[in-house]
Every structure is written in C-alpha cells, then in structure tokens.
Amino acid sequence: MATAQHDHSHSHHIIPMPVLIGNLVLLGFLMGATIWAAQSLPAMLHSSGLPDAQISLIMNIVALTIAFLKAGFVIAIFMGVKYTTKLVKLYAIGGFVWFCLMFIMFADYATRPMEPVHGWEPEIPSALPRNTSEIPD
C-alpha cells in the first residue's frame, strides 16, 4: 500500500475557467433557443403549411433535443464527467440508460385498452376514461 506510485499528471483535473464560462454562455444560448422555439417556431411552421399534428411533433422533438443538449453540457463540463475515469462515465451514463428502460412500461398502456374487472368502488372519478366492459373496443 505504501508503495503506491503517485502520478502527478494523472491527478485531479482542474477544469479551466474559460471552459466553464464558455459552457455557461452556450447554456444561456440554448435556453434562449428553447424559449424562442416555443414562442415563434409554431407560427413559422404553420405558415409553411404543415399539418398541426406534425408541428406539434416537431416542437416536442425540438424542445426535448435542446433539453438533452443542455443536460449533456451540464453533465459533461460542469459535472466534469468528460474529465473523469471510465468507471464514473459508466455510472453516469448507466443511470440514463436505466431511465430509458423504464419506457418499457408504456407497453402496458399500449396493449391494455380495457380493464377486465370493476374496481372496488363502483364509480371512481378518474381522469383516465375507464372501460370495464368484457370486450375491448
């Protein structure tokens, strides 16, 4: 244990201040972009004659792409994942992979359009419309 070699060049990485400032500017720009997109992009897309459903889809993709970009820059630079060891990177990425695995629960919503049995209470004021008939429509 005491014979550990200390490698100075491999010691903790100090993220340079210009990189941090640059990242802040970039994040501010992306924040502006997401607000601008939400305010003005639908009207622009509408005037180009796209159907509303597609505009809504595009807007959702744009908003979430910007959000993931922002999150990526925060994780990579501010949280220093770009500069850490591979094991830490694995953990950091693993959490989000695990989160994506949770999307599997949508399969339940897609494949079960009806509830086969009545609930305990005869009429629950639910936000989700309940279909308790034997045959799914």
Partner: peptide, 26 residues
Amino acid sequence: EQIDQQQETYVLGMWSFLVTEVLFFG
C-alpha cells in the same frame, strides 16, 4: 493505493446516489 483511486471512489459514490435520483424523478 493512491489519491486518484480515493477520489474516484467519492465521485463514484455520489454518482450512485445521483442515479437513484435520476430514477426517482424518472
């Protein structure tokens, strides 16, 4: 063994906690 390993352990522990938070909010 060395300072890098020690510090990696701290960061790894923190990330383990943050992963549970990701799933919590997820």
